[in-house]
Design a protein around this nucleic acid. Structure first.
Lengths: 211, 211
DNA sequence: TAGATTGTTAATCGATTAACAATC
DNA sequence: TAGATTGTTAATCGATTAACAATC
């Protein structure tokens, strides 16, 4: 386990740091102090220094942090330059949007196959990849060894599908369904995106702000 | 401020509780103990009791929790039955997927208008709502007073748009862009969904699991 | 050198867990 | 009544913040 002492709360902040630093870099800002970054990001300077220090001394006393250097280092930590072979299950609106996200920028993953159970979609192209019927999923995995699956289908069909994908060597899931993959397959990594949960949280917050 | 003593970590767990209870209810399970629920959800029984108790005594000693009752109560806390007038900005794949989510089930919001800057989309229908050109946004808001905006456009155009929406009375944002609304408008509520951040987190976790 | 700012430890704060009395 | 399970407090754990010595 690399960097095994890093807490999940720090990890969850890394992509945001990465985005902010990218922005600074694109605006030609070469140098930033934890204090200035804290104001831009709405965090404490203390937390920023603490966070960065989990991975080693990225800064220079009396100077601050070199923006392009720090950006590159966090990119390395996040492994954005990798191209983990990834398949997408479900080519509806959400699937297409998510395919965009994966293609758009380096995120560590590379989409190599798209599957949908809707026959009508078979053969249509998304970002240069043909949509295949799920019947071809098993053979495709045997031939191409993807390691990550992006799940953009409803929960109903998930039990069978997840078991199959795990059997076929999928090691991580970007899961947009409500099926709780991690509970059934603790051996794989799962990053859940629960859109409705997010919306309900907003609903709660709005209401509690009112009174 | 209603329930102002509730910590954000508890709030973030509520929608998940709601989903699990809905599932139990749909499976005809009438009663559940914190212990059994803890096993199903991968939490501690202690945390579950603690969480539920923030909102009052929902259970009964020696018996457990009444599933439909608890489900209804959490639904109330989340205000899923409200219909806050909501507009969607950006009718691409992501916008359409998100419109689905809002329509699909009670989440506290009701979509009343959809806008896109792409002229070619104007007039096309999504879930019974016509896509309007963003030029009509201002008048629409004056006429219909939406309180929530869902942002499914890239960050580039966000500064101007956000300022406009805040001026027009929008009180909360479900934000899929990387523009940091909350930093610029601390007076509104923002729930961010950063898809790429989520994917990068998965990238990090995968890589750190490898070595 | 003096000033600035990090790296790092200790102090604080908050969230989770354990324990058990209350009670159905 | 006895058994089960909550409600609730206290103990623990972990994350954030404050402080300052190190050093560029």
């Amino acid at each position: 386990m690399k960097e095994s002492n890093i807490s999940i709360s720090v990890i969850k902040r890394l992509p945001r740091y990465y985005r902010f630093l990218e922005n600074l870099k694109n605006n030609g800002i070469a140098r930033i102090s934890s204090n200035e970054l804290s104001e831009r990001m709405g965090l404490t300077a203390s937390q920023i220094r603490h966070d960065f220090n989990c991975f080693g001394g990225f800064g220079q006393q009396g100077y601050g942090y070199n923006v392009p250097e720090l950006h590159a280092k966090i990119g390395e930590i996040l492994c954005v330059n990798r191209e983990q072979k990834t398949i997408l299950i479900g080519a509806g609106n959400l699937g297409k949007a998510v395919a965009n996200k994966i293609m758009q920028r380096q995120s560590g993953f590379k989409l190599i196959g798209i599957f949908d159970k809707n026959e009508a979609m078979s053969g249509t192209m998304i970002h240069g990849l043909p949509v295949r019927h799920v019947d071809y999923l098993e053979n495709f995995c045997i031939d191409n060894s993807p390691v990550c699956a992006v799940i953009c289908i409803p929960s109903n069909d998930m039990k069978e599908l997840t078991d199959l994908l795990c059997r076929l060597g999928i090691k991580s899931f970007w899961n947009f369904s409500n099926y709780d993959i991690a509970m059934v397959h603790p051996e794989v990594l799962v990053e859940n995106v629960h859109l409705t949960d997010s919306l309900m949280t907003l609903s709660f917050l709005t209401s509690s702000k009112e009174d």
